[in-house]
Amino acid sequence: MTEARVEVKDLEKRYPVQKSVFRSAKDFIHAVDGINFRIDPGESLGLVGESGCGKTTTGRMLVKLLEVTGGEVLLQDSGEVIDISHITDKDDLKRFRSDVQMIFQDPFESMNPRRTVYDTIAEPLTVQRIGTVPDREAKVAELLNLVGLTPAESFMFRFPHELSGGQRQRVAIARALIVDPTFVVADEPTSMLDVSIRISVMDLMLKLADRLNVSYLYITHDLAVARYMCDRIAVMYLGKIVELADTEDLLGHPMHPYTRALLSAVPVPDPSYQRPPVEIKGGISKSINPEPRCRFYDRCPIAREDICGVQDHPPLEEKAPNHWVACYLVDKQPA
């Protein structure tokens, strides 16, 4: 097995729920509750789930926008492994910052309106003091060409308001790639874009992954987009990964009852297609001090009180080759 580019071990994020200013918190929101996964070089892993499931929190921890409260994130950097959640060394921090980048959801909010495209894209270089001004200009021009904003000279000194949504997202991609990262966290990078523009941005990201061997963590709520972009998909529910498998395997043979419900709820652009019924109960349960049992118990259509109700949340186990599921009952389901 090759070395994973990124390996996440028992990653955890808890937010204290402050009830009183004078007392320390007793209750915690378990936003991300002990998840494990690895991403290989050049691989793109999709992280899908409904709002509030912890997918964005996970992404933000991987780029150190949020502090980790438990577990570790290991990053492979030219033969060495850095635990990015506990970096103490300044050099390591610097290396981490050029290895890992993020693309945000909203191209209208993630750019300073008073700075030109050049300023925006070159900022990581300026901050990290890489290269001289002419070097940086050349590098920015190269990236603008790479992301399809040509001719580069005509875009370099424009302001964000002079760009369309698709063009802005291309700038955001260029900004993320300028430091030659090996790993990019993309949080819903195309959800604000129209269909016709979305495809070209997704194709661009795929092309860059191929060419630069970048690994992605692709966070999205849209399974159709995840299918297009990702080699493997992890489904999250209330801070836990409930299923992880190769994309086509997961979509074709979902095993976890939550994944099944989620997949059957996705509308299909074909009026003659009959979706299977969505089998799920009730609304989302709370993530504050969750009961020590399967997180999906209250909504699960197949839950059994004597098994799921009395044991802790099931571990993520390999139920089929490369197909990981966190459910006690999965083996017992007819295939």
């Binding site: 269909v195 016709s196 523009i197 194709d203 399974l223 159709a224 996705v266 299909v268 652009p269």
Partner: peptide
Amino acid sequence: LLLSSTPSIVGPRRKLAPLE
């Protein structure tokens, strides 16, 4: 073109045609 550039979770996995 709009329909051709819409990804779906059913059917074969297609390369989608971007609308230029």
